[in-house]
Design a protein around this nucleic acid. Sequence first.
DNA 1: TTGCGTGCAAAGGTTTTGCATGGCA
DNA 2: TGCCATGCAAAACCTTTGCACGCAA
Lengths: 138, 138
Amino acid sequence: MRRHPANYNTKQSEAVLACLAKHKDEYITAAQIGEHFQKSGDPVSRTTIYRQLERLVQEGRARKYTFDGTQGACFRYAEQPENEQDFYHLKCEGCGGIFHLKCDEVDHVSRHIFETHAFQVNDSKTVFYGKCNMCLPK
Amino acid sequence: MRRHPANYNTKQSEAVLACLAKHKDEYITAAQIGEHFQKSGDPVSRTTIYRQLERLVQEGRARKYTFDGTQGACFRYAEQPENEQDFYHLKCEGCGGIFHLKCDEVDHVSRHIFETHAFQVNDSKTVFYGKCNMCLPK
DNA sequence: TTGCGTGCAAAGGTTTTGCATGGCA
DNA sequence: TGCCATGCAAAACCTTTGCACGCAA
């Protein structure tokens, strides 16, 4: 039988996805997902978490990011937006927060870069580093 | 005696900086710097490389980046541009190449994000992920 | 002697892989 | 039986830290 994504899942697969959904837009790490399961009284091995995350990314149900972190580089994961819409990311170097940006002006620049500089921007992965409102001096 | 940056350097410090200069705009890793010294017949310990890189970044003579890599997250380093100018980065997800972008339109968006979305963009760290000319389908 | 750069070794992280087990069709 | 998800342990990385040594002021 040809498996469809919909029934290709196991308990842990769904659990990992549910965890990403619960921590919507938080861009959690594999370790954090592990802690989540630990607390919920149903621990899942780190290995399984990584394998499920990899699968979810392959299936287009999760996204993998490499944001600049304070303690070192590591991968972070988030749910794939349901409507497939793309948005830019603002990463605050002060508080570490990650914000979404949906903005026509940026879309315009994205097109401009493609037309003028022959580079096709993948909006959802693009990251503007900087300082958020709260972290700006004064 | 108060040391000045100019005479605060040792052989390895200069060597690391020279290596960054030699691999200009390549955004090399600590490991690659190590290989560079290995090949040149004058090996330097990994520890020293990291320490010199940290110092160079502190002194504003090098920049530290966290680019999304294929084989995992790690830090990459590059010379600080002599004229202190900032530019955006285009990271090709196909070939892994990193390109510089100096563009008024992007500068404009940078200001727009600050004025409208209250987020101050650090231009030199901002990364547009996507596909370069060579890697675009067709 | 004092300060500091250096390098070895070890530690602390994250992520991946090998292998045996167990569930389910 | 056969497939495959699971989990333990170990490996492979990257980066940082502790400690002792040696050079130069």
